[in-house]
C-alpha cells in the first residue's frame, strides 16, 4: 500500500529576513521523517515548544520549510510555486486549537462554513446551501444555527463547525493541531468519537497533534514522540505505551496518570 504522505528530513529554521537580525537562528524542525497511510491516524505527541505546531503549518503549506521534502501522493509540495501551492492547500486541512480564534467573529455560521466552497467556485448558490446543510449534519449540527455568530455557540459546537468547514474542500488529510485541548473533558470525548466516526465513514486520514499522550493512544494507530524538533520515537500506539525507549516518552508516560496506572497494573502479576 502506498503512503498518502511521506515526509523526508523536514527542517524549518526561523531567521529574521530583516535588515537587522535580532536573534540567532532557531531550529523548530530538525530533520523530521515519517510516512502516513490512508485512513489511519498518526498522533504526534510532545511537550510545548517541541515543534509540533510548526510541523502542522509546514505540512499544510502555510509555512515554507527550510529543507526536506513533503510527498503527497507522489508530488513534492516543497518544490511547488506559490500558485500551485494554493491549489494544493485545500487537500490538507488544518484544525486549530482554539475555534474562537479560527472562526471569523464578524461572520455568521453559514458564511464561515461556505467560505471554502465559495473560494473553490465549483458550486452555485443553491449547491452551496445544500452542501452546507450536508456538512453540518455530518458533524452533528443543524441548519438552525446558520445565522448565529460564533460567539453564540458553545465551545464544542464551534469545534464541530471548524471540522465541518475543514471537510468542505474535500481534503485527503486532516491535521488536528491540539484540536481538543481547549475543550472540557466530556466535549473532548464527543469530538474524539466524532473524528473516529468520520474516519470510518469518509476514510479520512488524520495527523493528530497533542500534548496529551492518553488521548493520542486512544485515537491513533501510530504515535510519534517529538522532542526539540526531532521525532525521537515512532511506532504503534500499544508498543509506545508498553515498551518506551526514549527518555522523553517515559516522561510523557509518567505525566499521564491514567496510562501510568494501567501499565503499572499490567506489570504487576
Amino acid at each position: 500500500m502506498q503512503p498518502l504522505l511521506n515526509v523526508e528530513n523536514l527542517v524549518k529554521r526561523y531567521d529574521g529576513k530583516r535588515l537587522v537580525a535580532l536573534q540567532d537562528e532557531l531550529s523548530a524542525l530538525d530533520g523530521v521523517s515519517f510516512s502516513l497511510f490512508p485512513a489511519t491516524t498518526l498522533a504526534v505527541v510532545g511537550e510545548s515548544g517541541s515543534g509540533k505546531s510548526t510541523l502542522a503549518l509546514c505540512l499544510a503549506c502555510l509555512e515554507p520549510p527550510t529543507a526536506g521534502c513533503i510527498w503527497l501522493e507522489g508530488k513534492n509540495l516543497v518544490a511547488l510555486g506559490e500558485a500551485e501551492r494554493r491549489k494544493v492547500r485545500p487537500q490538507i486541512q488544518l484544525i486549530f486549537q482554539d475555534p474562537a480564534n479560527s472562526l471569523n467573529p464578524r461572520w455568521n455560521v453559514l458564511e464561515i462554513l461556505t467560505e471554502p466552497l465559495r473560494l473553490q467556485g465549483k458550486f452555485n448558490s443553491e449547491g452551496i446551501e445544500r452542501r452546507a446543510s450536508c456538512l453540518l449534519e455530518q458533524v452533528g449540527l443543524s441548519m438552525h444555527i446558520a445565522t448565529r455568530s460564533p460567539a453564540e455557540l458553545s465551545g464544542g459546537q464551534r469545534q464541530r463547525l471548524a471540522i465541518a468547514r475543514a471537510l468542505a474542500p474535500g481534503p485527503k488529510l486532516l491535521i488536528l493541531d491540539e484540536a481538543l485541548s481547549a475543550l472540557d473533558c466530556s466535549v473532548q470525548a464527543q469530538i474524539a468519537n466524532l473524528l473516529m466516526e468520520l474516519q470510518t465513514s469518509l476514510g479520512m486520514t488524520y495527523l493528530f497533534i497533542t500534548h496529551d499522550l492518553a488521548m493520542g493512544v486512544h485515537i491513533a494507530d501510530e504515535i510519534a514522540v517529538m522532542h526539540q524538533g526531532r521525532i525521537v520515537e515512532l511506532g504503534p500506539a500499544e508498543k509506545i505505551v508498553t515498551s518506551p525507549h526514549h527518555e522523553m516518552t517515559r516522561q510523557l508516560l509518567a505525566a499521564t496518570p491514567s496510562i501510568a496506572q494501567a501499565t503499572r497494573l499490567a506489570r504487576e502479576p
Binding site: 503549518l57 499544510a60 503549506c61 502555510l62 494554493r86 491549489k87 492547500r89 485545500p90 490538507i92 486541512q93 488544518l94 486549530f96 479560527s102 467560505e115 471554502p116 473560494l119 473553490q120 471548524a162 468547514r165 475543514a166 468542505a168 474542500p169
Partner: peptide
Amino acid sequence: RAARGFGA
C-alpha cells in the same frame, strides 16, 4: 490561516 488553507 484557515482561509489561506482553503486556497485563498
